[in-house]
Amino acid sequence: MLKLEDINKTYNIGTVNEAKLFADFNLTIEQGDFISVIGSNGSGKTTMLNIICGSLAIDSGRLLSNGNDISRLKEFQRAKFMGRVYQHPDMGTCPSMTILQNMALADNKGKLFGLTMGVNKKRIDFYREELSRLKLGLEDKLEVKVGSLSGGQRQAMALLMSTMTPLEYLILDEHTAALDPKTSEIIMALTDEIVREKQLTTIMVTHNLRHAAEYGNRLLMMHEGQVIMDKKGQQKTETKVDELLDIFNSISVECGN
């Protein structure tokens, strides 16, 4: 369970550009939740993810993971129990290293990076098996550098790599936004499969309202640093894309754009 308690975050404090985004923001994420988060630009979706992951410091408030205060943990320390897939496929892989080396890196997460051989040959069959789930034929290209793969292939690898070791939370930061429609569907289906199989508590920010409606068991809409819609279970299942679109438009009208 992840709890955000009384989070305050103001950008550019003390300058003319000062902008308060979160004022006493609260959110509780239950174990096993798969939450889709939607909202317009500047609504605070990505800031929330950055706060959860520790890439952005908060002004005040607490983050509790299963009751433990993790607010003071650095980003790399939180990464021990969090996996994150970014919007840009380049963020989740190493372009100058081969597919095999990338898999080996991800496989060693949380362990010592010492002076033993980087690739454990006994694990290669397992890597092949995992890669074959992507149905992209990458299992036969182990020696190919990741930099020469397409964006979709790299994003599929990034997803696989970030979920290879045991995790508490999976953070998906518009992870299908940079992909073409077909690849985006493949990645989304794969995400759902992995989340179910590993029973990961997942927070997915997306601009794709259909994905938001279709996947997950809870749906949040954010606006100006607040959760303005929170649908769970049955309520969420009944939510239609058109309905979301209407609410979205009404917010925009209120803002005058």
């Binding site: 970014y86 963020m91 989740g92 190493c94 372009p95 997460k109 990076f113 010492g114 033993t116």
Partner: peptide
């Protein structure tokens, strides 16, 4: 030899993509 060890892999990863090093729960 070193560049093919786990430590060497991490070094290569650091020059390539610091975000990934952080994702691997290591301080780049």
């Amino acid at each position: 030899w070193y560049l093919h060890t786990k430590s060497g892999f991490l070094l290569s990863a650091c020059g390539d993509n610091k975000t990934l090093v952080t994702s691997l729960a290591k301080d780049f």
